[in-house]
Design a protein around this nucleic acid. Structure first.
Length: 333
DNA sequence: ACGGCATGTCCAA
DNA sequence: TGGACCTGCCGTG
């Protein structure tokens, strides 16, 4: 699954292309047939993203909750109004590959040529086609079929007159009442893009400073803080030069605050660029070099056995609650 | 063709 | 702590 930044980007696409519009809903795969029947013909009234969850509101207080889990993805097709702050042209949102980057994570900084849909300025309509791959140019796709053919297992298809969104492989896709939505959100830790940033910091600090649990586990706990996944966790801990096994209550308060502030920074960069940029402190040359290969984009994530970029010590990987934890035993002593 | 693996979360024992 | 859930990509043969 996308980490928190992707879900906020997906929510923006829904805000631009679905909110205020009536949709036809279906479940080509069949597993959400009943729910699709309920929302079909209704108008989308709002969208919210909290952490890795997205909530789409329909007429009559009907809410759709979607969690993509590790494998879920939304594919947008048809006419898409590109958010000017969404720089990436890729229509595929959220799906992941093996190398530790999202498919939308293609280099975009040097792609401002004609093949790029990158839109710096006024939003505009453009056409993209379904199931964009890494090689997709993003060129307008005038001859595309409408509605797009169903490819693979589509749990839910939402169609406006001009835009298609296909949901596949979610871990959660269900209809909720407003109260149920509130209950879900109440259980989630603060999200810098939802909660007041200062309030979020206080909540985060007070919870972390009370727990005996390791900071590595706390950062991945959705009830402690929203949106951080395995990549951001490793990178945040390295950037703080913090030993992942330090119990939350033993992390100095200032360091906990700095972790939150760094998360605020990384999340906003991620949402704006569509890339998990965790080495933003690099100079221009080093940065270009790092971005050239997707395996070179992080300080420690996915770098087991490779020399630490700072001290040269071999990066360690260990299994923690079934997830891989990468860290530098010297820098994060 | 097939097995392993992946940016996640929940729940039962 | 371990299993269940969900899909697609990549390496191996």
């Amino acid at each position: 699954m996308p980490e928190g930044h992707s879900v906020h980007r997906i929510a923006r696409q829904f805000d631009r292309n679905f909110v205020g519009r009536t949709v036809t809903a279906s479940s080509p795969q069949g597993r959400f047939a009943e729910g699709a029947a309920v929302i079909s013909g209704r108008t989308v009234t709002s969208v919210r993203a909290v952490g890795k969850q997205m909530f789409l509101e329909f007429d009559d207080d009907i809410w759709l909750r979607v969690h993509l889990g590790m494998y879920g993805a939304w594919d947008f097709a048809g006419e898409i109004l590109v958010d000017p702050t969404i720089a990436s042209a890729n229509g595929r949102m959220g799906q992941t590959n093996q190398r530790g980057t999202t498919l939308e994570d293609e280099p975009i900084l040097d792609s401002a040529g004609e093949n790029s849909l990158t839109s710096i300025g006024a939003p505009r309509r453009t056409r993209v086609h379904v199931r964009m791959s890494e090689q997709t140019t993003g060129l307008p796709d005038e001859g595309a079929e409408w509605p797009p053919p169903i490819v693979g297992q589509v749990r839910l298809r939402l169609l406006t007159d001009v835009t298609c969104a296909d949901l596949r492989g979610p871990t959660a896709c269900e209809l909720l009442t407003p109260d149920e939505v509130s209950a879900v959100i109440a259980k989630l830790g603060p999200d810098p893009l939802v909660d007041d940033v200062q309030e979020g910091e206080e909540r985060f600090v007070s919870v972390v400073r009370r727990k005996p649990t390791s900071i590595a586990l706390l950062l991945m706990d959705p009830s402690v803080v929203s949106g951080i996944g395995n990549v951001y966790r490793a990178e945040l801990l390295f950037r703080a030069r913090l030993n992942p096994h330090t119990p939350g209550r033993d992390v100095p308060e200032e360091v906990v605050r700095e972790l939150w502030r760094d998360w605020v920074r990384l999340l906003s960069i991620g949402v704006e660029t569509g890339q998990m940029m965790t080495m933003d402190g690099l100079g221009p040359d080093a940065y270009r070099k790092a971005m050239a290969h997707r395996d070179d984009r992080h300080w420690v994530y996915h770098r087991a056995g490779l020399p630490c970029r700072v001290c040269g010590t071999a990066i360690v990987v260990e299994e923690l609650a079934t997830r891989k934890l990468y860290w530098c035993p010297t820098c994060q002593a």
